[in-house]
């Protein structure tokens, strides 16, 4: 007998679960429904930027707001149980840093570099993305709506923010929901961990484009808001594990930007 026929004959005798196809079809349909729900909530943002410079300042205060949903609960709300589990188990970082500006309180709730979640081995978590949960509410407790939304973009110490940023490096998308008068965002950006050997900023601002009218690169490599920019100013600093930095990969990403 030919070897291919014998091999086929033998491997075809291996018995798998008789309900495999039925269970798989049901699983796919559930996943598709979940995906449809998320797509409907997604507000994808892609932009192109220009150039220039100047400086800014902002106030950062850190205090706890107990009424917020946890990052795990936010991820779960958007149907990403695996990400939720990562936040609950401590595999992802829970941060809870708060900035108050322009009558709003912003809370960076947590961050999950996809690479750290590689063990999850699920289509719901892309190891090449970084997930960030941010909450936003009115400081005076008045009603918040989707019209109050701001854009969040990661910047990297030493790079012009309008040239090299998280939007240009692989785009960004956000799921948004308002729960109990708090606007929650689940952002996903490119893999930020490769830049972990430098300060990574998460800037929140009005509008879409992070142009030089809004941001500056200071002489020491730090990034701030432009003096003439009068809109919402939020600047978080994200601390990731510097040992996970990959400058070679970061350079490659920058070189391939826009291709």
């Amino acid at each position: 007998m030919a070897v291919n026929e014998k091999y086929k004959e033998q491997i075809n005798k291996v018995e798998f679960n008789s309900n495999f196809e039925k269970k798989t079809v049901a699983l796919m349909k559930t996943q598709l429904e979940r995906k449809g729900r998320i797509i409907n909530m997604k507000k994808p943002v892609k932009i192109v930027a220009v150039a220039a410079a100047i400086t800014s300042l902002l106030a950062i205060s850190v205090f706890a707001i107990s009424v917020l949903l946890t990052p795990g609960e936010v991820a779960k709300y958007f149907g990403n149980d695996e990400l939720a589990q990562a936040f609950e188990s401590g595999e992802a970082q829970v941060i809870n840093q708060t900035v108050e500006d322009s009558g709003y309180i912003f809370t960076l709730e947590g961050i999950a570099p996809g690479k750290a979640l590689e063990y999850i081995d699920s289509a719901a978590v892309d190891v090449n993305r970084t997930y960030v949960v941010v909450a936003m509410q009115k400081a005076d407790g008045s009603e918040i709506t989707y019209d109050d939304s701001v854009t969040f973009i990661p910047f990297f110490e030493g790079y012009d923010p309008w040239k090299v940023n998280g939007l240009h490096l692989g785009g960004a998308s956000a799921h948004k929901t308002i729960q109990n008068n708090v606007l929650y965002y689940l952002w996903d950006f490119t893999d930020l961990e490769v830049f972990a050997d430098r300060t990574i900023y998460l800037a929140g601002f009005g509008g879409i484009a992070p142009g030089p009218d809004k941001f500056v690169l200071n002489a020491d490599g730090s990034i701030g808001f432009a003096e003439e920019y009068k809109g919402i100013k939020v600047m978080f600093e994200i601390q990731l594990d510097a040992a996970k930095a990959n400058p070679e990969k970061a350079n490659e990403m920058i070189e391939n930007m826009g291709r």
């Binding site: 679960n17 798989t24 796919m28 996943q31 081995d121 289509a123």
Partner: peptide, 26 residues
């Protein structure tokens, strides 16, 4: 069959193939 040839386990092969189909629709 392909997953089994790699993993040598029917249960693991079923997990791998389900993950593949999920990737197909996502």
């Amino acid at each position: 069959s392909a997953a089994y040839a790699v993993l040598k386990s029917t249960a693991s092969a079923e997990d791998a193939v389900q993950e593949t189909f999920i990737k197909l629709i996502t």
